[in-house]
Design a protein around this nucleic acid. Structure first.
Lengths: 196, 196
DNA sequence: TGAGTTGTTGACTGATCGGTCCACCATACG
DNA sequence: CGTATGGTGGACCGATCAGTCAACAACTCA
């Protein structure tokens, strides 16, 4: 009945997400978005709405994907304790440290926008709570498996692990070299996830 | 020999710093700076240079002040272990949690600008290294005082403590309520700074 | 007192921003 | 094959941006 779209929606969202990830929200112009998406302004607006809505869509895509990875990571290891260690070490799980320097789109966006943009703040809270719940579940499993002391509150432990992970992300963004960062990650994992 | 300035330089820098702190660099316009400083555009340019130089000046002022506070905090407690605990708990040391929500100007700036602004990245690294050194010194003292195990590398422990602290700052920016944040801070302090 | 110097102010500029609009195009269906 | 429908792309818009500048003000010193 009409002209079909000449682009793949998910592919455009990924390109846009990478642009926001690398440059931030304010520093990304519509011209940048037109360039990386290959679409014209009109098409971009017609398909996704304005810059803010497009950003939220890309951010939501990121948190969904990212949340899926966390879920997989926590479920894949035979022992929950190993999964939790992998969770803390995730920010340094990248040979060259490029991922560490790029940081986490959700964290970047929180720092840039959470004070002024209620939608971003809500997404940050949603992501934070979902991740805490996932990690807490694994902490509970590790306790059942006898790898973690059973007297600690799993949710409280999960929050501490999440804070430690995000602290590592921050230090990666200061340009700290990947080897030092890895050592710090190991120290944190060892202290926060002691055997027995 | 000429007309004297009608403003106090440090007072202007503090006002400008607060504006950048609350809104970020990109979201702060020159008009905002004119408003909070009480100066005209020309005076601002004449005294401090362009927006970027003014920002760096304010950021440097912040890190100097902040570094001084850390130094005092670490030096004030009779036992180094208590000082280190206070260091980790610093982000939640504010009744209403307003400071936690505002975050740390250096961290905010690192997230917003470090990838694109070499000056900000350099300031971030400088601050990070200085703080690590200060904390490491206290860790060493705590070890000498018998309050921390002597087998750990003080610098490594300091990096872990700094990461934990910055992780708390991040969680504060997601709007996590101050009580929960305080509990997480206590958990981190307990795990990273065990007695004996 | 007036010449010299620096500080102050706000109007102004060119660039760039996000967003709109419309002429044009490709397709589906009657 | 003609028409209706939605997609496309870029010219265009008003707003706002950082930064400049020139007229004027306040002060020192000769």
């Amino acid at each position: 009945m009409a002209r079909p779209r000449q682009f793949d929606e998910e592919q455009v969202i990924r390109a846009v997400r990478d642009q926001f990830w690398d440059a931030g929200y304010a520093a990304t112009s519509l011209e940048d978005l037109v360039r990386v998406s290959g679409l014209g302004k009109g098409s971009l607006y017609g398909a996704f709405g304005d810059k803010h809505r497009l950003f939220l869509r890309a951010l939501r895509g990121y948190t969904d994907t990212s949340g899926g990875h966390v879920r997989e990571m926590l479920a894949s290891a035979p022992r929950a304790l190993d999964a939790l260690r992998a969770f803390v070490m995730a920010p340094v799980n990248d040979p060259g440290g490029a991922a560490a320097r790029r940081g986490c789109l959700m964290a970047n966006s929180t720092y840039e926008l959470a004070t002024s943009d209620p939608d971003v703040l809500a997404e940050a809270r949603r992501t934070y709570e979902a991740t805490t719940a996932l990690v807490a579940e694994s902490v509970g499993r590790a306790q059942e498996e006898g790898d973690l002391p059973g007297d600690a509150d799993p949710v409280e432990t999960a929050r501490a692990l999440l804070a430690a992970q995000q602290g590592l992300v921050f230090m990666g963004r200061t340009g700290l070299d990947i080897d030092t960062l890895t050592a710090t990650a190991r120290t944190l994992a060892a202290k926060l996830l002691p055997d027995a």
